[in-house]
């Protein structure tokens, strides 16, 4: 669950990226966060992943208060969520299997558990047959599915995707969004940050519109609803 109350973020004392944002995302929800460049979407993502701390307000994700969160607690917060990026952020020298396994290995899981869970998520994203390939040998869509598998492997309560379809063609975009929908139906909260109208319009989900660091609209429907 995400609970932001009056969250503001100012960089260097004068650049206001977020202005008193109130946002609640309940467990099991599917939410799009949309808005033009410079709206504050990336800052919001950084706050949710504890990369930056709000300047004002309170923020809570999956039971962790993000204000004053100790550095030693950040890994444990991050294990409760999976993050998918536009540029996939895979380690090129590792195989698909190793990339996905990394997310669960860092939790201290044993080899058998790692094998079982990685096999399972690779099946979900349809990449079992490419487990031994390395990212550069895969297409953009496949790489994104590896990133999704990595985000899923710890069975997180929350998946945050930052422009997950930015590097994909329309067909791969639909495929990826179908996958997120499927993951959401399995009970995982999904937050997709995007500026692609078609992606939002194709799915009748909750849409939070951000501009100049403020939430201007929060409703179910398409991009312009």
């Amino acid at each position: 669950m995400i609970q932001l109350t009056g969250v503001s973020k100012t960089y260097n004392g004068y650049i206001k990226a977020l202005r008193s944002v109130d946002l609640t995302v309940e467990d099991g929800e599917f939410v799009f966060i949309i808005g033009p460049s410079g709206a504050g979407k990336s800052t919001l993502l950084k706050i949710l992943t504890a990369e930056v701390e709000p300047t004002a307000g309170t923020a809570e994700v999956n039971g962790y208060s993000l204000v004053g969160l100790k550095a030693s607690d950040k890994p444990y917060l991050r294990r409760t969520m999976g993050v998918v990026f536009q540029d996939f952020r895979l380690i090129d020298k590792k195989t698909v299997y190793e990339n996905v396994a990394l997310a669960i290995r860092v939790t201290g899981a044993g080899n058998r558990e790692i094998r079982e869970k990685v096999d399972s998520v690779l099946k979900i994203v349809g990449l079992s047959h490419k487990a031994k390939r390395k990212p550069p040998e895969l297409s953009g869509g496949e790489q994104q599915r590896v990133a999704i598998a990595r985000a899923l492997v710890n069975s997180p309560k929350l998946i945050i995707a930052d422009e997950p379809t930015g590097n994909l063609d329309p067909e791969r975009t639909k495929e990826t969004m179908r996958l997120f929908n499927q993951i959401n139906r399995m009970g995982t909260t999904v937050v997709v940050i995007t500026h692609e109208k078609s992606v939002v319009n194709d799915m009748a989900k909750r849409v939070v519109y951000l501009e100049n660091g403020c939430i201007l609209r929060d409703a179910t429907g398409g991009y312009n609803q």
């Binding site: 950040k74 917060l77 991050r78 380690i91 860092v106 990595r150």
Partner: peptide, 13 residues
């Protein structure tokens, strides 16, 4: 450093 950032992102201590 990219690899380290990825490890941090997935919750590595």
């Amino acid at each position: 450093r990219e690899e380290i950032a990825i490890m941090k992102m997935v919750g590595a201590t």
